[in-house]
Computed example of a mutant assay.
Amino acid sequence: MIIYYDSYCRLCTASSSLWKKLDWRNKLTFQTFRALEDYPAEMEKSLHVQHKGQWSKGYQAIIEIAKLLPALWILLPFLHLFKWLGLGDYIYGKIASHRRLVPVDQCQGDACRIDTKPKP
């Protein structure tokens, strides 16, 4: 499985690092979509995975990842229940729409301010 994650997103990179540690069977490959020359704009909005020619995104991608990581198998019934109830996609959407990107939102005070007034 190839996991296409956003390397500008701290949550995305932290999640990928955790999944990599749990992948003792070496079933996952990680690729930042930012390194691709031409990627679909949809990848900026949600996690994408490709496995055996099939694409999954968002909450469904998390379920597909959990299927390949034995340490997460115990969570699968709950993940599927949340999917069935519509909560999984809803919560995923809320988190994805409020995530912070680097370098966006990383400045404090005037540290990154760009002066738009020309100097005399």
Rank of each mutant, 00 (worst) to 15 (best):
L22R: 00
I91G: 06
C107A: 13
K94T: 11
K45W: 00
G86P: 02
K21C: 00
T116L: 15
Q106H: 13
I114M: 12
G93F: 04
K94C: 12
C9H: 10
W24S: 07
A71L: 14
P70M: 10
H80D: 03
H80M: 02
E44N: 12
Q106G: 13
P120T: 12
L18T: 11
R99E: 06
W84S: 12
W24L: 07
C9G: 09
K20E: 12
D23A: 00
L69Y: 00
G86K: 05
L36V: 04
D89M: 05
D38M: 08
S97Q: 14
K67Y: 12
K27Q: 15
L36E: 03
I3Y: 00
S16I: 08
D6H: 05
I65K: 04
I114A: 07
G58A: 04
F78K: 08
Y92P: 11
P40H: 02
D115Q: 14
Y4A: 04
W84A: 15
Q108T: 09
R99H: 02
A71M: 14
A14H: 10
A71C: 11
K67F: 09
H98V: 06
L28I: 07
L68D: 11
C107R: 06
Y4I: 04
K21N: 05
K67H: 14
Y92A: 11
L11W: 11
P40S: 08
R10Q: 14
L22T: 01
K20Y: 04
G88S: 13
I114D: 05
R25W: 10
P77R: 01
L28H: 08
K45A: 10
E64V: 01
K94P: 06
W73H: 13
A61V: 00
L18S: 06
K83M: 10
Y39P: 02
N26Y: 08
K117E: 13
D105C: 09
H80V: 11
I91A: 14
Y90F: 15
Y39D: 01
G88M: 13
L81P: 03
Y4M: 03
D105F: 09
M1I: 14
Q60Y: 08
K21T: 04
Q108K: 15
E42Y: 03
D6K: 06
Y90D: 05
K45H: 08
T29S: 11
K45N: 10
S16Q: 06
K21W: 03
P118K: 12
G58H: 02
T13G: 05
L85T: 02
Q50H: 10
P70L: 06
I74N: 07
G88T: 10
H98Y: 10
E37R: 07
Y4V: 02
C9M: 10
I91Q: 03
Q31N: 01
A111H: 13
L87D: 01
D115K: 09
S46M: 13
